[in-house]
Write a protein that binds this DNA or RNA. Structure first.
Length: 822
RNA sequence: GCGGAAGUGGCGGAAUUGGCAGACGCGCUGGACUUAGGAUCCAGUUCCCCGUGAGUGCAGGUUCAAGUCCUGUCUUCCGCACCA
């Protein structure tokens, strides 16, 4: 018998598969479609174990669904724009395009060595003009829908990447990519109006039962919907008015001051000419220039200063002092808040520090609250007091009543507010899709006409450390002709956030080579939505929220007929070693190339799927890899041991099976049932593999016994079929060695014979007071009464219950008898 | 602070509906085969005071029966965090 040598057979089959095109997906096919997709990678140059895990999971599902008779779409591509290519250009003088394409070539080789069942004819590379042509086209779709606009705003600026970032891309005050602190900069930038879709994005989370709750909760929090009211306060001295947003209008009679954000446009007017104007301005400048990190840190103290101006509380006509303070965010709500120290903890602290008034307007049921014995605000529900006509009302009921009052008296209204901000999409970088906009002195902002797309990236661009917006330095790129009036004009020199490229790539796969449109309606609606999407949890908000937004916009634009892109989402855990994420700086990286070189792709895949369920973090174990390797060798040997018998292709003679044979066949069909369910229903590949291992153990157990050739045929063939999605090469090789023709990966998934899974005899546990005391083997169909009789008569049970009263016996057929004694 | 997930042998993990806790794998121990074994095959492996014993972070509760349900509590990880 020859040895299992993955280095030989894996290459051989990969070549064969490619030559025969067995993973090419047909668009015209009557079988039911199934679209399985792994998040496409950034082309860093090399696969890491996280990729191996991601692709192994997707490949199992793709192969399994194919064998189950679905028409499977399983494509791959690259999220190929982005900063590292420019950094390489700065550091090593290579062109970003050259660097990126050579990295992609290398990674495709590595992916092919993993034996993944991709339809490579649909390869998508977002940096290719054939692709970003349509990214630009979609920008124009957004623009025409009124969803793309330019405005001056205080933006998050990463000084290391020399570009702005969207809110979602600032993690704890730091840049998501390079981790350097983010600073504030006032800049003119392009935005996508994702806030228009805040409500739909939130509501439609309910349409996603196939998503992990964790991800839905995170998106829910990120969108941050709150219900409340706007209240207008007059400022008679200035003939002005200021509007606050609150979720607690029921506390309005307790307002003792009001606070504006330092950026609030009214502040300048209110403080002008005050004797301490300079002092106030100082404070405002200091707060405004604080970094996101400092300003939102929980350590930073609440600070404020009185403007000298007063506003009128519309409910009771009281004069309330107007302050400015660091804790009020200009971007949220109206940038102004009311201060109710007695019923809001932050206000309690602030009022305590600056000696502002406190008045109780909601009391607990026993009416025991008193300012003097309060140590913090009372934020619970209760009954309104000191609240004019609303006094005596339950505060929950008072909220709508008081909003109605505001609306009737034209001094406020109901308002729903979101935490979500518009998506800042322009980047001051070269290696991205140029924003297809031209600025003309006469005509203003003009879209590049569709026929002139794509706006191509120029190649003669200089890269140097610290250069902002390299495109802006390319004369040839910047200067152009206005498509409207034909006069001289200038191009937009910012490129698009790469998250835009990745917000629609999964649609492009449906029609990847289309050069007339991003995709044909027919094909995108045939294949989408993605049935199973697989990727890391780190995109819970970023990519997954943006993609949902894109899908909804394209649906409203009539380009697609579905409104959620991913029906089922599987978020895989990290691959860790020695308790930490694999990283070069810690030095705990295990390279996939090395593992595949030594053990082959099948072992690597099998180990990574076996070691933990997909959602959990996976601790890398070299010994665990050995275990997977040993298992495949066991399969190799047992199949070859029986190869000649299997080749005879004898049919099974079920009535002739002896007990040992029946037992083996029972295990086989239980395994078929379990593996099918584990893949299809639970995505628990680890338990699927463990049950295949049990089958192999059972196969070994009958090795020295005479076994019917038909059963050996059934067992050997089914074993390979069950294992095929996990270890595609070894199973293909053995498939041919047992005399089968055609690829195993095109063969039908085995069916479970339910009758075979039922045992004639079952073991029943006999408990006394819930503790196992004995076991008996009885006919499977034995009923409750019969079991009880048998149990009580057992010598051991008889012994143990001697002198005690049997109160009752609980009998669960096929499982147990529990005798309750006293 | 708010929200979420998780705590099970020496290790990774199983137990899907309340019904034998520890499947499967690693590691370890022993045996067989062998010139040899870090190959292979077989067996054993939760703990202990070895029993009518204890045991799924801890303390209670419900139940004939609890890893699973309920109450409280501790720890770890993750997300959000002055959001008015």
């Amino acid at each position: 018998m020859d040895k299992y040598c993955p280095q030989e057979i894996e290459k051989k089959w990969q070549d064969q598969w490619e030559k025969r095109g067995i993973y090419k997906t047909e668009d015209n096919n009557t079988k039911e479609k199934y679209y399985v997709l792994e998040m496409f990678p950034y082309p860093s140059g090399n696969l890491h174990m996280g990729h191996v895990r991601n692709y192994s999971i997707g490949d199992v599902i793709a192969r399994f669904k194919t064998m189950q008779g679905f028409n499977v779409l399983h494509p791959m591509g690259f999220d190929a724009f982005g900063m590292p290519a420019e950094n390489a250009a700065i550091k090593h003088g290579v062109k970003p395009a050259d660097w990126t394409y050579s990295n992609m070539d290398n990674m495709i080789c590595q992916q092919k060595r993993m034996g993944l069942s991709y339809d490579w004819s649909r390869l998508v590379q977002t940096c290719s003009p054939d692709y970003y042509h349509w990214t630009q086209y979609l920008f124009e779709v957004f623009y025409k829908q009124g969803l793309a606009y330019k405005k001056k705003a205080t933006a998050n600026w990463c000084d290391s990447c020399k570009t702005v970032l969207a809110n979602e891309q600032v993690i704890d005050g730091r840049c998501w990519r390079c981790d350097s602190p983010v600073i504030k900069k006032d800049l003119e930038q392009w935005f996508f109006k994702i806030t228009d879709y805040a409500d739909t994005l939130l509501k439609d989370l309910k349409k996603l039962p196939g998503w992990p709750n964790r991800v839905k909760t995170m998106q829910d929090n990120w969108i941050g919907r709150s219900e409340g009211a706007e209240i207008n306060f007059a400022i008679p001295d200035f003939d002005e008015q200021v509007t606050v947003y609150t979720t607690r209008p029921d506390t309005a009679f307790g307002i003792s001051y009001m606070v504006l954000a330092v950026e609030h446009p009214l502040v300048g007017k209110l403080i002008k000419g005050r004797k301490n104007e300079a002092e106030i301005r100082n404070f405002i400048d200091r707060v405004h220039n604080q970094s996101e990190l400092e300003r939102t840190s929980d350590k930073s103290e609440k600070e404020g200063i009185f403007t000298g101006a007063y506003a009128i509380n519309p409910f009771n006509g009281e004069k309330v002092p107007i302050w400015v303070a660091n804790y009020v965010l200009f971007e949220y709500g109206t940038g102004a808040v009311m201060g109710v120290p007695t019923h809001d903890s932050r206000d309690w602290m602030f009022a305590g520090k600056y000696n502002l008034g406190k008045k109780i307007v909601i009391t607990d049921n026993d009416n025991t609250l008193a300012i003097d014995n309060m140590t913090d605000a009372y934020t619970d529900d209760g009954i309104l007091i000191n609240s004019g006509e609303f006094t005596g009302m339950n505060n929950r009921k008072a909220i709508p009543a008081m909003i109605d009052w505001l609306e009737k008296n034209h001094c406020g209204k109901r308002r729903i507010n979101y935490r979500l901000r518009d998506w800042l999409i322009s980047r001051q970088r070269y290696w991205g899709a140029p924003i297809p906009v031209i600025y003309c002195k006469k005509c203003g902002t003009v879209l590049v006409p569709e026929k002139d797309l794509p706006v191509k990236l120029p190649e003669d661009v200089k890269f140097a450390p610290g250069v902002v917006s390299p495109l802006a330095h390319s004369e040839k790129f910047v200067n152009c002709i206005c498509p409207h009036c034909g006069g001289p004009a200038k191009r937009e020199t910012d490129t698009m956030d790469t998250f835009i490229c990745s917000s629609w790539y999964y649609m492009r796969y449906a029609d990847a080579r289309n050069n007339q449109a991003p995709f044909s309606k027919e094909l995108v609606n045939k294949w989408l939505p993605v049935d199973q999407y697989i990727g890391g949890i780190e995109h819970a908000i970023l990519h997954l929220l943006y993609s949902r937004f894109f899908t909804k916009v394209l649906k409203d634009a009539g380009m697609v007929n579905f409104d959620e892109p991913f029906t089922n989402l599987l978020t895989q855990g990290m691959v860790i070693k020695d308790g930490a994420k694999m990283s070069k700086s810690i030095g705990n990286v295990v390279s996939p190339e090395e593992i595949i070189g030594k053990y082959g792709a099948d072992t690597a895949r099998l180990f990574i799927l076996f070691a933990a369920p997909p959602e959990r973090d996976l601790e890398w174990s070299d010994q665990g890899v050995d275990g997977a390797w040993r298992f495949l060798n066991r399969v190799w040997r047992i199949i070859l041991h029986y190869a000649d018998i299997v080749k005879e292709n004898k049919l099974i003679d079920i009535p002739a099976l002896n007990n040992d044979e029946k037992e083996l066949r029972r295990i086989l069909h239980i395994t078929i049932q379990k593996v099918t369910e584990d893949i299809a229903e639970r995505s628990n590949f680890n338990t699927a593999i463990s049950s295949i291992m049990e089958l192999v153990n059972a196969f070994y157990a009958i090795k020295d016994k005479p076994v019917q050739a038909g059963l050996i045929n059934e067992t050997g063939t089914s074993l390979l079929l069950l294992l095929a999605p996990f270890a595609p090469h070894i199973t293909e090789e053995l498939w041919h060695r047992i005399g089968k023709s055609g690829s195993i990966h095109k063969a039908a998934w085995p069916n479970c014979d339910i009758k075979a899974t039922l045992a004639d005899k079952v073991e029943i546990v006999i408990q006394i007071n819930g503790k196992v005391r004995d076991k008996i083997t009885v006919a499977a169909q034995a009923g409750a009464d019969e079991l009880k009789e048998l149990a009580i008569q057992l010598p051991r049970i008889h012994e143990l219950t001697k002198g005690k009263t049997i109160i009752k016996a609980i009998c669960i057929p096929k499982k147990l008898v529990n005798i309750v004694v006293k």
